[in-house]
Simulated scan of single mutants.
Amino acid sequence: MQVFEALADPVRRRMVELLAGGEQGAGAVGEIVRAEFGISRPAVSRHLRVLRDSGLVTVRADDARRLYAVEPIPPREVDIWPDRFRRFWSRRLDALGTELARGGREHQDRGRGRDWDRGRDPRENTTGTPPADGPLSTGNSGNSTRNEEDT
Rank of each mutant, 00 (worst) to 15 (best):
A61F: 11
T127C: 13
L96R: 09
P10V: 03
G113L: 07
G30T: 06
D117N: 14
T98D: 12
P131I: 12
H107N: 12
G119P: 01
G139S: 13
G30N: 05
D150I: 09
S40M: 04
S90T: 14
R66V: 07
D63A: 15
R120M: 04
S144Y: 09
W116G: 10
R65P: 02
L7D: 00
H47L: 01
V33H: 00
N147W: 04
T151E: 13
F37A: 00
R60I: 09
V3D: 00
T58F: 04
E5Y: 11
R66L: 09
R91Y: 07
I73R: 04
G30H: 00
G134W: 03
A64C: 05
G38H: 03
D9F: 05
R114F: 09
A35E: 08
R65A: 08
R41Y: 13
R87Y: 10
G134P: 08
E71D: 12
T127A: 15
G103E: 11
W116A: 15
T127K: 10
H107K: 11
L7R: 01
N125D: 15
A20R: 09
D83Y: 13
D117I: 11
E71L: 08
G30E: 05
A43R: 05
D115M: 13
E71R: 11
R41N: 13
A101E: 08
R92N: 14
G142K: 07
A43Q: 07
E99L: 09
G119Y: 03
E149S: 08
N147L: 10
L96C: 03
L48R: 00
G111T: 00
T145K: 07
N125G: 14
V29Y: 00
D53F: 08
A26Q: 09
R87K: 14
R102G: 03
V11D: 00
R66Q: 08
F4C: 03
G142L: 06
G119E: 01
A61V: 12
D53W: 05
E77Y: 06
R66C: 10
D53Q: 07
S144C: 14
A95W: 06
V50P: 02
S141Q: 10
S90W: 12
N143F: 12
T145D: 11
P130D: 05
N125R: 15
A8V: 03
D150L: 10
A20P: 06
G27S: 15
G55W: 01
R12I: 00
A8E: 10
G103L: 05
G55T: 04
A101I: 11
T129G: 14
Q108E: 08
A28E: 10
W116M: 14
G113W: 06
E124D: 13
R12V: 08
R118K: 09
P75R: 07
E71N: 13
A26T: 01
